[in-house]
Design a protein around this nucleic acid. Structure first.
Lengths: 139, 139
DNA sequence: ATTATAATTGATACATTGTATCAATAAGAA
DNA sequence: TTCTTATTGATACAATGTATCAATTATAAT
């Protein structure tokens, strides 16, 4: 619950307004234990704030990702999914069976980045790392 | 050009038919030097085969990914993109400026997978790793 | 070559996902 | 409370992807 406080401050700090819609989207994400797509967030959000607009969900998600408060997660099918970020930089591991999700750090990735950078001549600026498997309960 | 041959055999080998549509999608992907989305593949494909249907593009892309002949690449915005696979297992590094793309192997990732597996209790079954940056020419 | 068979195609219509517009609203400052 | 303007959300639309099913065509059998 205090992650909401934290991100709320962050929104205010960026000279934006802390609106009902934004708070609701934050709440929905904070209560979810798996990544949700925009439609699901809208559904959940309307239980808390019936007037919530579809568009505000999309806009708020973009904002949260921009602020680093939420992460975009690529599901193998369907729409983009989003989850609240717990740490400043993290990646996600999803259960293929139940959708449960945990975060992990990418410590150790630098070795690969160095190698690839050398091989390709690219200047590597960002990475997307996402794992899939079965959680303890679903194995 | 002989990757097309190879993948054509693979399609036949899976007791599927090597149709005009499928060949055309393969050709378009083989000639591209950056990942293309379905719409772009349809456009290019219709130059070779005007009757090509939108749906066949989607179906063929699914098939190619299933066979391991093509890879799904997540662009930060817009539709899903696809690129022909050069090796049996690979990942992609995209230039943020010009869209140019190179493949790389994920040798060295096992260390991270082991660690995350231990920390989370998950049985890790698959991974998505994609890098972004600037290619030699765009730096 | 010709024919038979069934996988595949693609036109149409539709579903889903995401976006532009802009008057109305409401958050935050005075 | 009042003012200012960022933000909202209804509407209409654009873009992306899918279901249906008669027509087509790749392949095997003759």
């Amino acid at each position: 619950m205090d992650r909401i406080q934290e991100y709320s401050k962050q929104i205010r700090g960026s000279s934006r307004r802390l609106t009902r819609s934004r708070t609701v989207v934050l709440q929905v994400l904070a209560e979810a234990d798996e990544p949700l797509d925009a439609a699901a967030i809208l559904d959940q959000g309307r239980k808390l704030h019936p007037g919530l607009g579809r568009i505000s969900v999309y806009r708020t998600l973009d904002l949260l990702v921009e602020l680093g408060a939420a992460r975009l997660i690529h599901a193998q099918q369907g729409a983009k999914r989003y989850a609240l970020a717990h740490t400043s930089h993290s990646h996600h591991l999803l259960c293929r069976n139940c959708g449960h999700m945990v975060e992990f750090s990418c410590d150790g990735l630098e070795v690969i980045l160095q190698r690839v950078s050398g091989e390709s001549g690219f200047k590597v600026q960002g990475h997307l790392l996402q794992l899939e498997g079965l959680c303890r309960d679903c194995q």
